[in-house]
Amino acid sequence: MNTTNKIVLAVVAVIAIGAGATLSKKHDSQTVAAPAADIAGPVAALYGQSMNDASGAPHALSQWKGKAVLVNFWAPWCGPCVQEMPELVELSKELAGKNIGVLGIGIDSPTNIAQFADKYRISYPLYVAGMSGTDLSRQFGNTNGGLPFTVLIGADGKVRKTYLGRLKFAELRADLAAL
């Protein structure tokens, strides 16, 4: 990566951190309504992608079709994202036998995501999307590109709920129980 790309990435990261911190303080997890007519588009876009995991191995996201999935858009430099990760790890362990998957889509470089995953022992699947992950989250209704942004997709492929900001796990558990 050349110096210009590093500077651009650093500027984008600083802006996103500021936006994420502001959103998390103001909205500490708010539901973002997805228009009913647009629901199939983002889910199809998600399942139509292949992304590398933190170790660089490619995975077709279509493998998640037919399961309820909690998709968490995050970044290692996003404070609220990092704060909710331990609870997401625990939740993923609880949901392991219930046909509900938890996955993270990282908005950063493969190296940073791999280092973070190793350091914090993230046990659920993490995929590397880079900045294209922000575009994907926008398709789900995250118009400002704030992080963390989480999408609950039912086994039928319909978006059940979206969450902007740090997750409120009591609310999330109730939403998961309603699936």
Rank of each mutant, 00 (worst) to 15 (best):
T4H: 11
K6Q: 15
V8Q: 10
L9D: 15
A10F: 11
V12T: 07
V12F: 09
A13R: 15
A13Y: 05
A13T: 15
A13D: 13
A16G: 06
A16F: 04
A16H: 07
A19G: 13
A19H: 07
T22W: 06
S24Q: 11
S24D: 15
H27Q: 06
H27S: 08
S29F: 08
A33K: 12
A34S: 11
A34I: 11
A36W: 02
D38I: 01
I39K: 14
A40W: 01
G41A: 14
G41L: 08
P42Y: 04
P42A: 09
V43I: 06
V43T: 09
L46N: 03
Y47I: 00
G48F: 05
M51Q: 12
N52S: 12
A54D: 03
G56Q: 08
P58E: 10
S62N: 15
V69M: 04
V69Y: 03
V69G: 06
L70Q: 02
V71Y: 06
F73S: 05
W74E: 06
A75E: 06
P76I: 00
C78T: 02
C81M: 09
V82T: 06
Q83A: 13
P86S: 01
K98F: 00
N99M: 05
I100C: 08
G101W: 03
G101I: 04
L103C: 13
G104C: 12
G104L: 08
G106L: 04
G106Y: 07
I107L: 15
D108C: 01
D108A: 08
T111F: 02
I113Y: 02
F116S: 02
A117V: 14
D118P: 01
Y124C: 12
